[in-house]
Write a protein that binds this DNA or RNA. Structure first.
Lengths: 193, 193
DNA sequence: ACAAGAACAGACAGGTCTGTATACTTCAGG
DNA sequence: CCTGAAGTATACAGACCTGTCTGTTCTTGT
């Protein structure tokens, strides 16, 4: 039989191409024609899988959340061999990301800024993603600090978000070191008390 | 004589209107036609004062930097009557901003994201603005902590940036309290040592 | 072999975008 | 009174945008 709707090769090619272009140039700046040309796909194929561009944007964000998870999983595991501290491994992974070619900040945040519409499904998804990401981060903090994690985890989250936007604007990954040192200081203090 | 080029009424109306629309909906989403309609200005007047939309974007960013300075100056002075601590007054002013109607994050950051082009004059200006803003913040930190300011000021900057993006995505000003508490903790520790 | 689903190819409609061109109005200073 | 600067009004070019429509080709299960 023909490939099922969710695993179609054309669909996958569209998702990957759109993800790459959206991240590099923005969801508003990249048009449908550009995506189908680079994905080597017919326009009707795109609209069969994604009824509108807004649907495609949402699908790309969902697709990207999976990729982000994979990236941090792999990078942290790589670093875990040096430091047993998971929080340190996370910041090392963050630095890897900042230094990766084509780094342009957080795709979710960027999309939310460009959409500029709180009712857009993509904006809603970004909000939920950030909550999930913060929960993940809180888990790492809890391993480092134990019960008092609730107190410092949100501050660590702000340091991470701040480091992301600062790194992309300054065009340098240096912010991650500042964020890591401050986060470790806050964690150490929470532990000490 | 006719008003000089820099103080023309039409020019001012264009700047204010463009600033309002750009901030609310984004520099890419708002077109020239929309701006001239709401500013009640002829298209040729706009292009006389700003040769291209990119020039207008840059001019709006410069105009806005002045307004931001005014806002924080006024808000901090208002709060300075309650707390003598300038850093506390700053975070109180930040909260005022987060709670102001139509808050949509940092206009400079948003513009940089939308432009998605490091060579764009607007992007360059955003980078410089952030450096100036960080210097201003470092001044506040120095008053609180003295000589050791260089150590904690960058971290406080990340907390502030993180609070801005988090507040807009979560649609709540709660992040500012987290940022303030963490910043004061870092400052207190730097002072103690 | 054949029907049906999936993808391809490309034209097209209707709208929006930036930027230019043309012609008219208003008004102040010499 | 006349010149020139500033602003107004409007039409237009050329590009690009999303989404639709019509056909063709390829593959695969029955």
């Amino acid at each position: 039989m023909g490939r099922t709707r969710e695993t179609s090769e054309a669909r996958q090619r569209i998702l990957e191409t759109a993800d790459r272009l959206f991240y590099a140039e923005g969801v508003r700046a990249v048009g449908i024609d550009r995506i189908i040309a680079e994905a080597e796909v017919a326009k009707m194929s795109l609209y069969k899988h994604f009824p509108s561009k807004d649907d495609l944007i949402l699908a790309v964000l969902q697709y990207r959340e999976g990729k982000v998870l994979e990236f941090f999983g792999a990078a942290m595991e790589r670093h875990a061999k040096r430091t047993k501290d998971k929080l340190r491994a996370f910041f090392a992974a963050l630095k890897d990301w900042f230094e990766s070619p084509g780094f342009r900040g957080c795709a979710f945040q960027n999309a939310a800024v460009e959409l500029a519409d709180p009712t857009h499904a993509g904006t809603q998804f970004v909000k939920e993603h950030k909550r999930r990401f913060q929960a993940f981060l809180a888990g790492l903090v809890e391993e480092a600090v134990g019960k008092g994690a609730a107190k410092v985890a949100p501050a660590v989250g702000l340091l991470v978000e701040g480091a992301i936007v600062t790194a992309v604007i300054q065009g340098s990954p240096a912010a991650v070191d500042v964020a890591r040192d401050a986060a470790l200081k806050l964690v150490a203090e929470a532990k000490g008390v």
